[in-house]
Write a protein that binds this DNA or RNA. Structure first.
Length: 455
RNA sequence: GCGGCGUUGGUGAAGUGGUUAACACGCUGGUUUGUGGCACCAGUAUGCAUGAGUUCGAUCCUCAUACGCCGCCCCA
């Protein structure tokens, strides 16, 4: 049997409906913040990622899907979204648009050649946003608040923002040096991995799980202490805007992010979810003021965020969060003989065009099997087509919940269905997903609740 | 890239070196020749991830490969 490639997934059925719902919330929230959808290629020149992300880490050298196309060009399946967006910004000269900054969001598949494990696939779907062309701390705060609000609109509770600042290039270099100086005399007390990290990527030692309880780590120099005045003021401004926007956060000096291109603000957002394990980070991002110039564009200050949709879907399911997913149909059309089947074909079309969700029988089941099928599909109404009725211009329609059957004129079928189906529409149709326990909208906000502003 | 464990019908799964691979759900048909969801009856894997080997004989033992889960590395 042909199997799907390692680390890839088929998403279908109920899970697919959850995905579409999550994506619809993302779209709606992005729209409110005035971020425009952008689609960039799934593969790009290998060079884009090498220059953008940096050669230093393992990431680019061995963890991407590289291939040579028939023209001999070196291509790479995108491992993340930011580089492609920056390339597009530069190539399309968006820096010339009068409406700076450029605010965009994407949602697409990324590819990483890694050994799959919990919460980590080779093909994954991420959404993210980027603000290109602003160094204003307000844009940092806005990106963070937007990310938080998407999670909240989805109904996730206990969202925690961890924020840190790496400072500008000077601050970062100073800090890196300070870290090496600090750890070097104690190198023997670190785990094996950290000993190699010391030269390669000293910042990551702070993230180490093995040495997490090591006193050495707890007393290590903090990025914040090495910020120069300008960087420090900038970080304070970001935090102030977050306060004003009523986004709660925690300064966590161990957040460093893996990539070279980050500076100033870096952050990760985690959710406390039962069953999520230690790997509970939903997404993260940061400021990257030099990436655009690195790939040949003008120096452009940017900030962005990215988050895996698969993990969000998993979190929603684990938390058993109610979602407005349609899992039933309006009407199931049943028939027995060929004449009735033909009428079913005609009627299904008519009703669908009139706006109803209609299904019928395609596998030759008997009437008994068709009733079972109607139940499996959660049909609200069933119709058993009958030649005699049809000759009398009549049709039997049965409420599949109350089991009451009525014989009505074919001419009023659409009107009848419309009336019946919309009768109970006032019921608890919308669940409020603002994520605020104190919310008083009682679900009548139509999914459009802004009550989290009153927290 | 390294390591541990796993893979049995549509599904959940039991099982054993030896002839018919349990049980349950589901599905199909019948009892009921066009109004079901109950009940009863019947049918439903020449097949136990794939390939090779050991053996008189392999789903079971060995090895390899693929995929999965979980760690490590790395984490965008």
């Amino acid at each position: 049997m042909i199997q799907k490639p390692k680390g890839c997934n088929d998403i279908y059925g109920r899970e697919a409906k959850i995905w579409k719902y999550v994506e619809s919330v993302i779209d709606a929230t992005m729209e409110k913040y005035n971020y425009n959808y952008i689609r960039t290629p799934i593969f790009e020149s290998t060079e884009l990622f090498h220059r953008g992300i940096g050669e230093s880490t393992d990431i680019v050298t061995k963890e991407t899907y590289d291939f040579t196309d028939r023209g001999g060009r070196n291509m790479t399946l995108r491992p993340e979204g930011t580089a492609g967006v920056c390339r597009s910004y530069v190539e399309n000269k968006m820096y010339g648009d009068p409406t700076q900054p450029v605010k965009v969001y994407y949602n697409g598949t990324m590819y990483r050649y890694e050994r799959p494990q919990s919460g980590r696939d080779r093909e994954l779907t991420q959404f993210g946003m980027e603000v290109l062309g602003s160094d204003d701390p307000l844009s940092d705060a806005e990106v963070i608040s937007l990310a938080v609000n998407i999670y909240k609109m989805l109904g996730l509770k206990e969202i925690k923002v961890n924020i840190n600042s790496l400072g500008d290039k000077d601050s970062r270099d100073m800090y890196r040096k300070a870290l090496i100086d600090y750890f070097k005399p104690h190198i023997g007390e670190l785990c094996e991995d950290c000993q190699t990290r010391l030269e390669k990527n000293p910042l990551r030692i702070l993230d180490c799980k093995v040495d997490a309880d090591n006193e050495l780590l707890k007393n290590a120099p903090k990025t914040i202490d090495y910020l120069n005045d300008e960087s420090r003021e900038r970080f304070e401004a970001v935090k102030e805007y977050l306060d004003i926007m009523q986004v709660s956060y925690e300064v966590n000096p161990n957040i460093v992010r893996g990539l070279d291109y980050y500076n100033h603000t870096v952050f990760e957002i985690e959710a406390k979810v039962e069953g999520f394990g230690s790997n509970n980070v939903l997404g993260g991002g940061g400021r990257y003021n030099h990436l655009c110039s690195e790939i040949g564009g003008p120096e452009t200050p940017c900030i962005g965020f990215a988050s895996g949709i698969g993990r969000i879907v998993l979190a929603l399911e684990l938390e058993k969060i109610k979602m407005p997913i349609v899992e039933d149909i309006d009407l199931f059309l049943m028939y027995v003989n060929e004449e009735e089947k033909k009428y079913a074909a005609y009627l299904a079309q008519e009703l669908r065009m009139a706006g109803f969700i209609v299904d019928t029988e395609y596998t030759g089941r008997g009437l008994k099997g068709q009733f079972k099928q109607a139940d499996r599909l959660n049909a609200k109404y069933v119709v058993v087509l009958n030649s005699e009725d049809l000759n009398n211009n009549e049709i039997r329609i049965k409420n599949n919940k109350t089991k009451e059957e009525e014989i009505i004129s074919l001419d009023v079928l659409i009107y009848y269905l419309d009336e019946q189906l919309n009768a109970g529409v006032e019921d608890d149709y919308h669940e409020c997903h603002c994520g605020n326990d104190e919310c008083s909208c009682d679900g009548d906000c139509g999914g459009d609740c802004h009550c989290h502003h009153h927290e």
